[in-house]
C-alpha cells in the first residue's frame, strides 16, 4: 500500500469524522454528544477541503458549527432539567431494529459503490469555487435561491412563534 500524503490525510480526516459521528450516537452524556457532533462537522469541513470545495468548507464551519451546534446547545440547556446524565439515552433494544436497518442500508450502499463503474472523465485541477457557485446561484439557479430565502424567512418566523412563551398579558 503506497499512500500519498493526500490519501493519508484523507484517511485521517475521514476516520476522525466517522469516529466522532459514532460517538455522537452512542454517548450517554448528551452534551458530550453535541461536542462530538461539532467535531464531526469539523471533519466534514476537512473532507470538503480535500475535495477542493473551499466555499463549502467555509460555509460548513460557519453555519453548522457556528449556528446549528450553538442553537442545539441552547436548546439542550433549556431542556436540561429533566434529562439528567444518568438516564439511558439510547433505546433499550437498539440491536433489534435500528442497527440492522442501518447496517442493511450501509451494506446496500457499499455494494453499489463497489460494483458501479462511475463514468469519470478524470479529475480536473483544483480551482476556486466560490465565484462559480455565486454565478450559478444567480443565473441558473436563481429561482431556488429566491425560494431558499423565503424558506429561511418562514423558518425564522415559525421558530419564533413556536418557541414563544404564552404570557397572559401578552399584547399583539
Amino acid at each position: 500500500m503506497h499512500l500519498t500524503l493526500q490519501q493519508f490525510s484523507f484517511i485521517a480526516v475521514a476516520g476522525l469524522t466517522i469516529i466522532s459521528a459514532a460517538l455522537v450516537v452512542t454517548l450517554r452524556n448528551i452534551f458530550h454528544c453535541l461536542l462530538f457532533l461539532a467535531l464531526a462537522f469539523l471533519g466534514v469541513a476537512g473532507i470538503y477541503l480535500l475535495l477542493s470545495a473551499d466555499f463549502m468548507a467555509a460555509a460548513q464551519v460557519l453555519i453548522y458549527i457556528g449556528a446549528i451546534v450553538v442553537l442545539m446547545m441552547f436548546a439542550l440547556m433549556m431542556t436540561h432539567r429533566v434529562m439528567s446524565t444518568n438516564v439511558i439515552q439510547t433505546l433499550g433494544q437498539w440491536w433489534l431494529a435500528p442497527f440492522p436497518i442501518a447496517a442493511g442500508i450501509f451494506f446496500a450502499l457499499f455494494r453499489v459503490l463497489i460494483r458501479y463503474d462511475f463514468k469519470l472523465k478524470g479529475v480536473p485541477a483544483a480551482e476556486p469555487t466560490t465565484g462559480i457557485i455565486g454565478t450559478q446561484l444567480l443565473t441558473r439557479y436563481v429561482l431556488p435561491f429566491e425560494l431558499a430565502s423565503i424558506v429561511l424567512l418562514v423558518a425564522m418566523v415559525g421558530a419564533i412563534i413556536l418557541a414563544k412563551e404564552d404570557k397572559p398579558d401578552d399584547s399583539p
Binding site: I18, V25, M83, L91, W94, A97, P98, I101, I105, L109
Partner: peptide, 20 residues
C-alpha cells in the same frame, strides 16, 4: 465515508431517546 456517515445518522435517528 458518505455512506458511513449516513448510516450512523440513521442509527442515531432510530435509537436515541432524546429528541435533540
Amino acid at each position: 465515508v458518505s455512506g458511513m456517515l449516513f448510516c450512523i445518522g440513521i442509527f442515531g435517528v432510530l435509537s436515541r431517546r432524546n429528541a435533540i
